Computed example of a mutant assay.
Amino acid sequence: MTEGTARDVETWLRARVPERGMRAKGAAVLEVLVTQPRRASYGSAAETAELAGVNVATVSRTAQLLGFSGWSELQQELRARYLASLSAPDVAAAHHTEGDPGSASLRRDLDSLAVLTRRLDTQLIRTVAEAIARARRTLIVAHGSYVAVGSALGHNARLAGYDAAVVRDDADLANSISRVEPGDVLVAISFWRLYQSTVTAAEEAHHRGARVFVLTDAASPALAGAAEQVVLIPAEGVGFFPSLVPGLAVAQAIAAHLSTVDPERTRRAVEAAEAQWSRFGLLHRTPRRG
């Protein structure tokens, strides 16, 4: 972890300390998180308690004092921030597993989906979907492999009858942001490493009066400051790569709710799209109308 990133982690953690401060034992736990983020990211609550010289209950109470439901939620975001500080080879080393990597990847995705199911506030899904439904236009910003998540959300939003565009090129992004107005929505999608252009787009869209939502694994202060809501999604993968599976699951959940906001609008949009699929001869077999 670089010195700058270490400062970022410390700033993030200390900003969550209540104004009334912390007692000595809680402060000891905080010091472990700040000074030994790797060990805290991968260790158990008991191991963190041993490093801090406290009991496990104190670790859990400290996590809650910092605004998390418990140790596992705090550890998830701490690990996401720690991994974001590493180079790709360092991430691969941190994720080294014995046995078949394909099986390990599948197990990791299953575990992440289970965590997502337990922790995600479904009201956030409704809020994002209903914002897209009310928007004049929705701009979805995604780069690198995260484009897969953005493309799924944009494709399904358009199919449901709403104006949504996915932007992955920085020049196109700058041009698109120049046309953002109040009544628009921007959805920023970023996992592991955060692109500066994503931050700039979120800040500028917010400044222009658009509603901004973020899908990410760690709430960057820059993104969180511009966003109305941040949807935290586990994204740790195996090897070099962050997992896209939980992010795609959230994109699908948003699209599923979006299709129920105005069912008649979505029905008309799907029928119109299917007519064009037939006109363009896109399908190997044309489905029969019921």
Rank of each mutant, 00 (worst) to 15 (best):
G144C: 05
G154C: 10
A84Y: 03
L283S: 05
S243M: 11
S85E: 14
R211G: 04
S112F: 07
R118L: 02
F240P: 01
V128E: 06
G43A: 13
A164S: 09
H207P: 00
G43W: 14
Q64C: 03
Y82T: 10
R61N: 13
V238G: 02
G53R: 08
V185D: 01
D121V: 08
A253Q: 11
S69M: 04
S72N: 10
A57V: 15
V238Y: 01
A269H: 13
S178W: 05
G102M: 12
R39T: 13
L194A: 00
P182N: 03
L86Q: 12
R7K: 13
L248T: 01
E204A: 11
V180S: 02
S178K: 07
A235P: 11
V238K: 03
G43Y: 13
A164W: 04
L223T: 02
P89W: 09
D184W: 08
V187M: 05
L106N: 01
A202P: 05
R108L: 08
R108E: 09
V149A: 01
L159P: 04
T260F: 09
L51P: 00
E181Q: 06
V199A: 01
E204Q: 15
D100F: 13
L65W: 07
E204Y: 11
S60T: 14
G4H: 03
V238P: 00
D217V: 08
G239V: 04
A205R: 04
A94D: 15
S41W: 15
R211L: 14
G70F: 09
P89A: 05
L116R: 02
S243H: 06
A164L: 07
T127D: 07
A15V: 00
Q64V: 13
V128P: 03
P287L: 03
L86M: 15
R126I: 12
S243P: 06
S41P: 13
T200F: 06
D184L: 07
E204D: 15
A88V: 15
T260V: 06
L120N: 04
E271I: 02
H257G: 06
R119H: 08
R79E: 13
